[in-house]
């Protein structure tokens, strides 16, 4: 399988009032062509910041201090590229809040057609046709009529479909989705996830899907990367990572979420403490102050992702501690 997008050693720094913090620290990710990579973590883990850095959309004051972005080219090789040159062209993004991300002064058809015309050489009428066709493809009922609508006339689910149509208008190879279903109801979320899964398979699109919801990851992703305090702490194929986690943080996340299918009829497990402040990360393993398996050498541990099973990498230096409790039949 060919790699569609690779991010190598990405670091982002923000300087404010003379203090520098590093919300994204040495993050490496890769997504294969036609696959969906799930990026999970709690708020403040740096997942959205990573996506924004990939597209060069970092807020004022934040800058990429190191890292390389490689995109699959027509020649079949990975080429180093500049975020701004690929924004919208090879990589598109679907944002969380569809109301604030759609221009309220433009009709739906124009929003989509503008994107298509900015990146592809086409006439106004061609762009218009493309927009209506895309609206049909993303499951907007009566696309010719809805194309004339303003964003505020659409429901949340339809707005998110328009966002996806807008992202597809530039024919990207990679789609970045930043919590695209968090603001939606569960039945609408199911429709949008179904839609993203279908266009991924039909168009051979690669998706990086950022979410805090592990159940959604279990449904749509093939690969997963877990972020904690600005770093990737575990990566691998989705089932091994969720079912046989090799990092205590992933394990804690998995056991702290309630499930629909099985009722636990008992207290949920919790993670003690709170995520660290980016201005003051603990030394060594950043999860160690909250980790139930922490040992003295954890505070001196270097952050390296080590392959423990096929394609399954963890930054934990004591994965055996977790393996021993898993065997005893805990969740």
């Amino acid at each position: 399988m060919t790699t569609a997008l690779e991010v190598r050693n990405l670091s982002v720094e923000i300087t404010r009032h003379g203090h520098t913090i590093r919300p994204v620290d040495d993050v490496s990710l890769s997504v294969d062509a036609g696959d969906c990579l799930g990026l999970v973590g709690e708020s403040g883990a740096g997942k959205s910041m990573t996506l924004k850095a990939i597209l060069g959309l970092l807020p004022k004051g934040a800058r990429v201090t190191s890292g390389e972005l490689l995109l699959h080219t027509a020649e079949g090789t990975l080429a180093s590229i500049d975020p701004i040159s690929v924004r919208g062209h090879g990589i598109s993004m679907v944002f969380q809040e569809p109301m604030t991300a759609l221009n309220p002064t433009r009709r739906v058809v124009d929003i989509i057609a503008d994107g298509a015309r900015a990146h592809r050489d086409m006439s106004k009428s061609e762009a218009h046709e493309t927009a209506v066709r895309l609206l049909g493809e993303v499951g907007v009922p009566a696309p010719e009529r809805r194309a004339r609508a303003w964003p505020h006339q659409l429901s949340g689910g339809l707005r998110q479909r328009v966002m996806i149509a807008m992202a597809l208008a530039t024919e990207p190879d990679v789609l970045l989705c930043d919590e695209p279903t968090t603001a939606l109801d569960v039945t609408v979320q199911d429709q949008i996830l179904g839609l993203l899964d279908r266009i991924r398979r039909e168009r051979g699109l690669s998706i990086i899907f950022v979410t805090h919801d592990l159940a959604v990851i279990g449904q749509v992703a093939q690969e997963v990367a877990v972020m904690y305090a600005g770093r990737v702490v575990e990566t691998g194929p989705v089932r091994p990572v969720l079912d046989r986690s090799l990092h205590p943080y992933t394990n804690a996340l998995v056991t702290s979420i309630p499930h629909v299918d099985i009722g636990t009829d008992q207290r949920l497990r919790t993670i003690e403490g709170a995520p660290p402040d980016p201005a003051n990360f603990p030394p060594g393993c950043r999860f160690s102050p909250r980790c139930p398996f922490a040992q003295p050498d954890c505070t001196r541990a270097e952050h390296v992702l080590v392959e423990q099973a096929t394609d399954h990498r963890t930054a934990c230096i004591h994965p055996e501690a977790l393996a021993s409790i898993s065997v005893e039949g805990s969740p």
Binding site: V186, T187, Q189, D190, Q191, L193, G194, L195, L196, D197, R198, D213, L214, A215, V216, G218, Q219, V220, V238, R239, L242, V254, I257, H259, V260, D261
Partner: peptide, 13 residues
């Protein structure tokens, strides 16, 4: 429609 953690329900189910 609820996302299934174990992947037993495909999206769009």
């Amino acid at each position: 429609a609820a996302p299934s953690f174990d992947g037993s329900r495909p999206p769009g189910n």
